[in-house]
Amino acid sequence: MEELDKIKEHLRRYEPQLKDRDALREGVIKKISSSRSGLDYVFGWTEIVWLRRSMALASVLIVILFGIQQVFMTKRIEKLEKRMISINTDKVLEYQREKVIANSVLFTDLERKDMNDSIKVATGDLLDLVKSYRSLQTKYEEILKKARTDNLENKKQKL
């Protein structure tokens, strides 16, 4: 340790000489004179601490607001999707019944997560199927109606 102390003493006594001080000084002046570029004027405000901090805080708040908005939007879309199917099936049924039923089938099918048991059916085929189902239903209703009226007539005749 004693040797180290001697070396430290030698180092302390040595004053390094800065060579060419003028060149260094002028180098600094040259740099600080040319450093005022257009970008400095645009981004000069970043030097102001309180402004920089408040901008950072604002950006964080905007990101949080964006996240909250996204959550609300997703929930709203989900609600609207559910409503769309019910509107299709209940109210528009009057005049595009077949298409509406087909659409609702397609929608509900697409929403299903587990598609392992599903089969693929072309939209045209599905519409034909619904049409034939509808015509059968109409015929069945007509037959029922006819049967009812026949029954009533028979009863009248018996009386």
């Binding site: 004053e15 390094p16 800065l18 001080r21 260094l24 000084r25 600094v28 002046i29 600080i32 004179s33």
Partner: peptide, 17 residues
């Protein structure tokens, strides 16, 4: 910048050391 030159002259050696 003239005043800044004076500041540099005053502190240059110390910082260099």
């Amino acid at each position: 910048q003239i005043e800044f030159r004076k500041l540099m002259d005053d502190n240059m050696d110390h910082l260099y050391t």
